[in-house]
């Protein structure tokens, strides 16, 4: 019963947030002073035909709220409007680009999960010893490498100097595609590995200092059991939370990495569309990223009570 209430409330929050985000994204256009037609046709020839087309396409002759409702209605039908630069439906353009970005983000996610968790756990279990210090220093360094810096360094070393990996393009076919994604996914993962490692380490250290861990030790449980059952298990919450936040960071940073490696994904499409003043595409991608972020965080929120029974109790009480 309480679980249903919890799920219902989280879904409610999700819908409200997405709705508010859609308002923000749509009405951001109103912040730009001057004629919306001129804004949408920046950098293009304002021929009478073009003006008529844009006015019709965006319903610029209608009031703003009416435009919003139409836009929202179209969204539900999977119609994200038309790209000004490609003269295609935005949906089509996005669908073409989606696989590359997905591959990049998934590959980076796997790297982050494996390396970040491993580094954090090893550091925490060796607190104050050489391994911990080495990992801490390494993570301070990694944490200071923004993805574009990582991209430049990786290209300089592994693509240009050593020539092991391609530096540009998405490749052909599945295997070649993955091969082209190796350097980009590493560049994308670097900062986030450091983030996950730090959170894992501090969350575990926090638990290691708790009295219940000492109690478990005093009862003759072997160290490995104490760590698994009482430290790692209890440390999961913060790690999960940061993973949720991290998804948005990954999606945005992928635009930088895709741009650096010339990958034809959603991220580079975003940059290209800003560059070519193609506002409908920008609008669609921003909203897409926000929706994914909110969705992932709702899932994280729903997982929390499974990990910590007190969360469920607190949520039920509210």
């Amino acid at each position: 019963m309480n679980i249903f209430k919890l799920v219902a409330r989280k879904l409610g929050t999700l819908l409200v947030t997405v709705f508010a985000a859609s308002l923000l994204v749509f009405f951001s256009r109103a912040l730009v002073p001057g004629d919306p037609v001129a804004f949408l046709l920046r950098g293009r020839k304002p021929s009478p035909e073009a003006i008529a087309e844009v006015t019709k396409q965006f319903g610029l002759d209608k009031p703003m709220w009416q435009q919003y409702i139409d836009w929202l209605g179209n969204l539900f039908h999977g119609d994200l409007g038309r790209s000004l630069q490609f003269r295609q439906d935005v949906t089509t353009v996005l669908a073409d680009r989606l696989p590359v970005t997905l591959g990049l983000v998934v590959l980076a996610g796997v790297l982050i999960a494996i390396l970040g968790l491993a580094a954090g756990i090893i550091a925490a279990l060796n607190r104050g010893r050489t391994a911990d210090r080495a990992i801490l220093i390494a993570m301070t360094g990694l944490g200071a490498i923004p993805s574009f810096v990582g991209a430049i360094v990786l290209i300089a070393v592994f693509a240009v100097q050593l020539g092991w990996f391609p530096s540009y393009g998405s490749g052909d076919g599945f295997a070649d595609g993955i091969f082209h994604l190796i350097l980009p996914s590493i560049a994308l993962a670097l900062t986030f590995v450091a983030l996950v490692a730090r959170v894992t380490r501090s969350s575990m250290l926090d638990q290691l200092e708790r009295e219940h861990v000492e109690v478990a030790t005093s009862r003759g449980l072997p160290r490995s059991r104490v760590v698994l059952r009482h430290v790692l298990r209890n440390a999961t919450g913060p790690i999960l939370t940061v993973s949720g936040v991290l998804v948005a960071g990954l999606l945005v940073a992928s635009s930088i990495v895709e741009q650096a490696f010339g990958l034809a994904g959603i991220g580079s499409l975003l940059v290209q569309s800003v560059d070519r003043l193609d506002f409908p595409v920008v609008q669609a991608i921003v909203l897409l990223i926000v929706i994914i972020f909110v969705l992932v965080n709702t899932i994280v929120d729903l997982l929390a009570p499974l990990i910590d029974p007190r969360v469920a109790a607190g949520a039920a009480a509210r």
């Binding site: 708790r210 009295e211 219940h212 059952r229 209890n234 007190r310």
Partner: peptide, 8 residues
């Protein structure tokens, strides 16, 4: 309260 693992 702190001696018994609150999540188990």
């Amino acid at each position: 309260r702190s001696g018994i693992n609150p999540m188990r």
